[in-house]
């Protein structure tokens, strides 16, 4: 059986050769089994979001290899990788098209990986499916399907982005701090929806978070990144028994105390 995701020795340096040179990924290796739900933590600039962007193909990597379910996607442009991926971003504005209505946004996600033809954009059949899926979110969105997404709250937009990301049962779901911009109550709700969508569809998922409790309570595996490397990787029982103080200790150990100012402390 092939891995759901295989990242081999990925390197990325931004602004190479300039005064702003930044080693973002410094030999990242990671293998995910199908159905793994990995949470990723680490300080600012550790390479968490950068890893997700490398997988999504936002820019080409300098060296290394990225394979999803046996398919080497290292050289594919962003829009072609979308076939394999579902993505939710930190900024609720990023995942949806504000000037288009809810059903149009969902319909666009429904055609991920297909060529866009001159058929009408949303079919009647799809509208029924959308209505059901929106109702399951319990946010009352099923009665607002022709409302522009721009009129919705951040939490509602993230919930819709989650639906869009999972619509085609992607090989891998990438959640990039997708609750960080939400108030605590909404964040909890969006996390709950995320959990449900992942388990219902049996998705393989990666979730970047700054909240250590969330990182421990969600998923079956946890990795910690520091300076572009994965420095800690736990799964199963060992992960379940983790406490925030264990993670903090681990952090102190690798960063030599410099970590004290990090916003992670607040979590």
């Amino acid at each position: 059986m092939s891995y759901a995701l295989e990242i081999c020795d990925v390197h990325k340096i931004f602004n190479k050769g300039t005064i702003n040179e930044k080693v973002a990924l410094d030999g990242v290796d990671l293998k995910l089994n199908p159905g793994d739900f990995v949470t990723i933590i680490g300080g600012n600039g550790a390479g968490k979001s950068t890893t997700l962007n490398a997988i999504a193909g936002v820019w080409p990597i300098d060296s290394g290899r990225i394979v999803i379910d046996g398919a080497d996607i290292t050289r594919l442009p962003e829009h072609k990788r979308a076939v394999y991926l579902g993505r939710v971003f930190q900024d609720p504005m990023t995942g949806t098209a504000a000037s288009m209505n809810i059903e149009e946004n969902l319909a666009i996600a429904c055609r991920r990986g297909q060529s866009r033809t001159l058929k009408w954009g949303v079919s009647r059949q799809e509208k029924e499916i959308f209505r059901e899926k929106l109702a399951a979110l319990e946010l009352g969105l099923e009665d607002r399907m022709t409302s522009k997404v721009g009129l919705l709250s951040g939490g509602q937009r993230q919930a819709i982005t989650l639906l869009m990301a999972s619509m085609k049962r992607p090989k891998l779901l990438l959640l990039d701090e997708h609750t960080a911009a939400l108030d605590p109550k909404t964040a909890a709700k969006v996390l709950e929806i995320s959990d449900r969508i992942i388990s219902e569809n049996g998705l393989t998922a990666m979730m970047v978070t700054h909240n250590m409790k969330d990182a421990i309570n969600h998923g079956n595996r946890l990795i910690m990144m520091h300076e572009g490397k994965i420095i800690y990787d736990v799964a199963g029982e060992e992960k379940k028994n983790l406490h925030v103080k264990d993670l903090l200790a681990k952090f102190e150990e690798v960063s030599g105390g410099e970590f004290a100012n990090d916003r992670m402390m607040l979590a």
């Binding site: 999504a56 829009h79 995942g95 098209a97 000037s99 288009m100 996600a109 055609r111």
Partner: peptide
């Protein structure tokens, strides 16, 4: 035209090209 799959892809591109690419639109 702008109600078809292709037209919607154009509208999504103009509105939010990050979203468009994430949804597989060239």
């Amino acid at each position: 035209y702008f109600g078809t799959e292709q037209g919607q892809a154009i509208r999504a591109t103009g509105c939010n090209d990050n979203m468009a690419r994430a949804q597989g639109i060239n």
